[in-house]
Structure formats: C-alpha cells, structure tokens
Nucleic acid binder design. Structure first.
Length: 272
DNA sequence: GACCAGGGCCGGC
DNA sequence: GCCGGCCCTGGT
C-alpha cells in the first residue's frame, strides 16, 4: 500500500464534488473510494463522514492537495451569506453542502471545457479519457495499474485534420488543434492569465478558438479560482428563468456568486 | 427510424 | 446582435 494522510474536514463531500460537473477525472471506484488523476499524479480518497483519508504522504498533501481541494477556505462563511428569503439557494446549498471549488490545472480546464460544449457529462468524461489515452503520458499507480496524464499543449499542437478523430470530439476537434497551436506557437500566453483579474482573464480567454463566454467563465472559476465567475449553461439558465424571474441577486452575492452557481448546478442536475 | 438534447461557439448577415 | 449549422452519442 502507500502512505495515508487523514484529515477532519467540514463542508466536504467527495461524492458531491465528483458529480458536480467541475472535474471529469475524479471517479468512484468499485470499493467506494475515489480516484483522481491530476497534476500528473494519481490519488485515492476515502471519506467516512468528516474524516477524509488521502492516500499520499503528508508532504504531498500539504504541497498539492490541500490547495487543490481548497481546504483552507471556510465555506460555512459563504453559506451564512445566503439570504434567508432566497429559498431556492438555501435548498440548493443544503443539498450540495459538501461541494468545493477545486483549483484545477489551467491548460486542462481550457481543453476540457472546450470539449464540454453541447455535450453531456458522461460523454465529456469519455472524450477526456480517450484524449489522455492517445496523447497523455503513460504512468503506473501504487496499485500497479496504468493511468494517463492529461496531454501537454505540445502533444496536441501540430496535429493534422484527422489526428484527433479517435477521440469522438466532433467539431471540437478543430477548436482543440487551433487552441493548442496558439499556445505552443507563443501566440497566446497561458500563464499570464494568472496575473490578471477576473474580467481581464475572461476577455483574454475569449481569444482562444472554441472559447466563448460560458467556457471562459468555467475556466475562470475552476482553474483560476475567480469565485465570482458565474457560468450560465442550459441548466443554470433554466434555474434563473424558473426561480429568479426578477433576476439573480448578484449584488448580494458579490465576490462568491460562482460558488452558489455550483450549488445550483448540482441541485438541478442531481436533485429536483 | 425520427427526433431531441447535452455545462455553446463560429461565421455570415 | 441574431441565427443557422455543427460532430457525436444516448435516450425516447
């Protein structure tokens, strides 16, 4: 086996996070634990109520996963700011109380959310996995099982028309090639985005091929951790139409609306 | 088999 | 700013 790091964490539910539509390589295993491939690593997680076991050394947990799972943020403080009269959000938050916004890798989120457009979650996972299998690096985990890292920009740049076809990406195929080419050629400085504020980062992201408003918002929220980013997809649009006919109270939730968006998304997809 | 929808975007007008 | 078209898959 491998080292374990055990923590007591409030407002954390690995199952809810896995199903919240923000990450696509966090999956339930047959024994009820969860496996995650991120940062070129393989991690397993077991949850028993508030006790979370991370199958890694304390060092690795402190340097990588503590931040990745946003564990030092007090989500109770956000929840306390939900207006008591905002019944829909009260319910959504109670339903998805263990959701946190992960700090995922920028390049991976760019490509993953290009793939996500006009697509559903199970198929997004399939597309991402086949992309990793075809262009990622092959690794072995502590169980001696094979896994694949997310492909680097260089691995996806300079591909021909037909190269990505095995991944069933459809018309997104072209977007991914063009975006990879822009990044690798130096025409787009991905890592400068970390220095920009939310609005500026979003405007820059729109320059990428296949990235519109919604995808840019997702990248801002899930990679750059601008928690005021508020992606509006078909589900959230439906929620807004049905439950906020007078408009969503953005002014009340300034600075963290993206977290509430995630409660609402999960509640709409998984709840009622 | 037809039709629709899925964490939308592009290009032409 | 609006709108048709778009790859592919799974569900009805």
């Amino acid at each position: 086996m491998t080292e374990k790091t055990i923590k007591i964490i409030k407002d954390f539910d690995i199952a809810q996070i896995a199903d919240s539509g923000q990450c696509f390589r966090l999956n339930k295993r047959e024994d009820g634990s969860y496996s995650l491939i991120a940062r070129e690593r393989y991690l397993e997680i077991v949850q028993q109520e508030e006790e979370i076991t991370f199958f890694c050394e304390e060092n690795e947990f402190r340097e990588i996963w503590d931040s990745y799972f946003d564990l030092t943020t007090d989500y109770g403080a956000f929840k306390a700011q939900i207006e008591s009269k905002d019944l829909y959000m009260q319910n959504a938050c109670a339903y998805g109380r263990g959701i946190r916004i992960l700090r995922q890798e920028l390049w991976e989120m760019v490509i993953t959310f290009i793939i996500s457009q006009q697509n559903n979650i199970p198929r997004i996972k399939k597309c991402v996995e086949s992309l990793c299998r075809a262009y990622g690096e092959k690794r072995t985990n502590f169980r001696n099982e094979t896994y694949y890292t997310f492909p680097k920009p260089e691995a996806l740049a300079g591909l021909g028309e037909e190269d990505l076809c095995s991944c069933s990406l459809g018309y997104r195929n072209k977007y991914i090639r063009k975006t990879a080419d822009m990044v690798v050629s130096g025409g787009f400085d991905l890592y400068r985005l970390y220095d920009l504020n939310y609005e500026d980062a979003r405007r820059e992201l729109l320059k990428l091929c296949g990235v519109g408003i919604k995808v840019a918002e997702c990248i801002c929220l899930f990679a750059l951790h601008h928690i005021d980013a508020f992606p509006i997809d078909t589900h959230i649009q439906k929620v807004l139409d049905r439950h906020y006919p007078e408009g969503f109270p953005f002014s009340k939730y300034q600075g963290f609306a993206g977290i509430l968006q995630q409660y609402a998304f999960y509640y709409d997809v998984e709840g009622y």
